[in-house]
Structure formats: C-alpha cells, structure tokens
Nucleic acid binder design. Structure first.
Lengths: 199, 199
DNA sequence: GTCTATAAGTTGATAGAC
DNA sequence: GTCTATCAACTTATAGAC
C-alpha cells in the first residue's frame, strides 16, 4: 500500500505496532529492520519515529501492552477468591489457553524477546510476568489448604503448568485435527492431574 | 586472549562453536556478529571462515549436533522397549531433565532459533525433533495398551510433557533453593500425574 | 505527518600477504 | 591458519523540505 506525500495521521500508530508485532514474532526483533516495518505499513522509515522514539522502545511497548492487558483481562474475569480452588483453577487454565491462541504473536514475543530488552526494561517485564504467575500460585495454595489439591511445590508447579499450557502454541493450528475447544478440554484435564485434584 | 600472527590450529574449531553457542544462546543469533564471536575466541573475524562457510551454517551445525547427540544419548541409555512403560517413562523424564540443565545453551538454541534457519535447514531440524518426540509418544502408547496409563491424546500429551520439562530451564539455577535432584524428583512426579499413572 | 537525503556506524564475507 | 584490508550492503536515527 504505497503512499504519496502528505498527512495520513488516521491510524498509523496502531498499524506500526501491528506490523512490528507480527514481524518481530515471525522473524525475531534483531532480524527485522525499521525499513521492513515501514514497508509493511506503507510509509518511509523516517515516519516511524513519529510513533516511537526508537526500536527498543517499540519492542518494550509491545511487550508491556501485552502483559498489562493480560493481567487486566484476567483480573476482570477471574472468579472471586472465595470460590473453590477447583473452579478457580479451571477458570485460569481456560483463560490462559484462550489468550495464548488468540494473541499468539504477543505471547510469543513476550517470552522470546526478553534477551533483547535493556536490563531496565527486562526487570519491568519480569515483574509483570511474576504477577501473573502469582495468580496461579495463589490458587495452588488455596487448593492445598482446602485439601483438594496435593501440590508439593506451589511456585514451581505453577510454572510447570504455565510452561505446559504455553506449549500449545508451538503446534496448535486452527486447521488442525483438534479444535481449540477440544485442546482446551484436554489440557484442562492435564492441569487437573498435575495438581492431583481429588475427583 | 589476544593472538599474534601465525598458525594456531590446535583447537580453534571447537572453540569457535563453543563461543557461538554461548553467544547465540545469550543474545540471539541475529544479534551476534561474526566479529563478536571472533573476539570471544581470540582471533580476527576472517579466521572464522576456516571453520564454517557462513554464519547460517554455523547455526545449523550447532543445532544439528545438539539434536543428533541428544537422540544418540537417549538411545544409548534408553531401556529396552520390553520393559514396563512406567519404567521407560521414568527413564525418559530423568534423562530429559538432566540433558536440559547440562546442555542449557544448546537446548535453548535448538528451539529458540528455528526462525533463523533457512527453510531447508528448518525441515531438517524439525525431523530430528519429531524423532525425539516420537520416543515419548511410543512410551505413552505402550502404557495405554498395558492399562497402566490413561492418556487421551498420546502425541499431544507427549508434547505437553516435553514443554513442561523444558520449562525448568527458564528458572532453574544451580545456586537456587532446590537442587537438581530435588527438581528431578518433583517433575518426575508431575509427569507421572499427567499420564494418570495407576499407583 | 510524511517525505527525501544523509550521517555514522556495523554487517557478512572475501582477497591476498605472511 | 591467521592476519590486515577492504567491499558493498545494510543498519538506526536525524534534519529539514513540503
């Protein structure tokens, strides 16, 4: 979509972020040049700097937006802490699988490109990630205390569950043998087995 | 370790691969220049081309060496297919956790840098990865047939288990609260829960 | 807000001396 | 086998015209 000279302020900002997200996820941050992003958006490279001070900030903003929207989406729909751990666990597992497939590029970026963040930005994203992990760890503790789970190491088991669920993104395709619904049901069962849910 | 002019053929080849492995794993393939690798080894950039025709081949060789040595190490110590699935599963889980922590850089590279392989090289590494996954899938099938596992989807469950075990590398440190032995025992238990091992 | 032009530096890879 | 020197292409980011 080539452009001629002039003002086209419409929605270039979001389009820059969309293009960067997709290209970074597909080829890797370091492999994608500002020219490639500009070309994808349909502007010249210089124009990108109206929307980001530099490439590093563009990466950080994408990761930061993903993590904060992940946390707020979960908190908006998370069941009250007073309801049984088994229901909260199910809710978390279903939410995580859905988000992972709906926002595959952002999820991929947020844990593949940590190496390319400055140390300050790395710490910031790391804190948000830990906040999210804490949500699941809290559910593990509650289930243990209620005597419905048998989790030896709540923190480590929470990370094991998240790693297992993130693995879906490696192979899942809409066009594959299993529907997303089927994958969700299957992995929910695996998660329940990991916490040794008393049936 | 600066060098002066002359022949130092000793062990430069392995040192180039060691440096490349470490730097690629730490900073990402695309972020590391041939000059950085050369500097780490203690030679000038031009000298690297005595050991690899180009940067892409260097990456591919590192990944290929890891995958083939992974497969042959497993096959060398894998229990006979006639022994019970429960023992084979335990053997696989322990082997995988050990390898993952012993060769953390290679493991990291082999699944983080797939994007930076040419399509031909990508296919090649993908086949080796599938061979490895097949080893675990085979164990799942055997356990199901023997009636000791209750795995609904052997292929997908195999990948879920591998994803869960790979997750250890994200947080495990030798200096951390848990020893590698403790982590191995803990995750073995999680794996056994995932296959719903009858106790 | 976007363009063109450009600065200043880095990149992968090669050629030829030693 | 390693060095130095070099090339052509590419990089991020900026300046100033429109």
């Amino acid at each position: 979509m080539a452009r001629t000279q002039g003002s086209h302020s419409d929605i270039t900002g979001p389009r820059v972020r969309d293009a960067a997200l997709r290209l970074f996820a597909r080829h890797g941050y370091a492999s994608v040049s500002m020219r490639q992003i500009a070309n994808d958006v349909g502007v010249q490279a210089g124009a990108l700097y109206n929307y980001t001070p530099d490439k590093q900030t563009l990466l950080f903003d994408l990761m930061h937006m993903h993590m904060t929207s992940l946390l707020s989406a979960w908190r908006a729909q998370a069941p009250d802490k007073k309801i049984p751990a088994i229901k909260r666990l199910e809710s978390f597992a279903r939410f995580h699988i859905r988000i992972n497939t709906q926002r595959a590029d952002a999820v991929f970026l947020a844990y593949m490109e940590l190496r390319n963040l400055t140390s300050e930005n790395f710490e910031h994203i790391g804190r948000l990630r830990r906040e999210y992990e804490n949500e699941l760890e809290d559910i593990m503790h509650q289930g243990n205390e209620a005597g419905v789970f048998a989790v030896d190491e709540p923190r480590i088991s929470a990370m094991a569950v998240i790693a297992m669920l993130n693995g879906v993104n490696v192979w899942f395709r809409e066009s594959g043998r299993l529907s997303l619904d089927a994958v969700e049901e299957h992995h929910l069962k695996l998660v329940q087995r990991v916490v040794a849910l008393k049936p």
